[in-house]
Amino acid sequence: MRYDVTLPWWAWVLMGLGLAAFAAMVVVSVRRNRGVKRSLFAAPYTLWMIIFTIVPLIIIVYYALTDASGNFTLNNLRDFWDSNYSRRAGASSPAIQARLAARGMSNMEPLLYSLWMAFLCTVICLVLAYPTALFMADRRMKRASSLVILFVVPMWMNVTLRTYAMRILMVDDGPLINFLRLIGFADAQLMDTPTAVLIGMVYNFLPFMIFPIYTVLSKLDPALLEASSDLGASPGRSLIKVTMPLSIPGVVSGITMVFMPAVTTFTLNVMLGGSKRLMLGNLIEQTFTKQNNWNMGSAMSLVMMVLILISLTILRKADPNNEGGGL
């Protein structure tokens, strides 16, 4: 039996020693309750973050800003927005470039499609999640915790498995389509349509909207609602004037947690959408794996990261104190 992870022996020794040293440090500092700084406890995570977050980020930026031979260039970024990146290929003649350009070759299409789908997904999640969270946070609801479990359990499963289950629901002779036919939609089709992708996205990301809102709502002081009712507000008015404004941090957190993964979706597009339209995630994946163009792929990732960063900054304005957990 061979191990797929083959590290040289000294790497194992180093890892063992490192672990032992850290354990010893923790034990010592806890026993003596002095001397070692608290922040040292974060050392393993800091190290992890430097290696697996900061370094890859630097690598992406490096590739995005260089060409195939490693020279600095801004062409990758320009070509992305220029929506005709074939021009970067030195070998292609101006005539071919003109012909390709005339066909309206475009990266904007996948980008806009991804943003639009992520937007729809976020809105649908919000509409579904808010009442659910309200319901779960209601103190008169005795079974809130079992409802919480109901939303958590599917998250224990692998995304791919969950998506396979969705396919069984949505295939042409599956239960959903048969139901739609029964109520009069003879030509109903879900698989291989953008609708199927959207359903898959909502299904996968809904818990990320529910939980931040639920957390904020369940921490809401009931005295506030009692007060508003004492002052003559109807339950509906209390909801709009008291609960909703106070829950905004949760909503903001939920929106970011749904929108970010939604914008980068690509497996759902393959498994449920039949790859009939490219999403930005597919384009990036394809550029890396099939076209082997790491520079362009990194530039696309960089563009996407900057877009997400911008939307996060805007959203943060609505939740300046990070009450929704922040991200």
Binding site: S92, I96, N293
Partner: peptide, 11 residues
């Protein structure tokens, strides 16, 4: 591949 196949395939 870079100049024709890939752009046409994306198309």
């Amino acid at each position: 591949l870079d100049s024709l196949y890939n752009p046409l395939w994306n198309d």
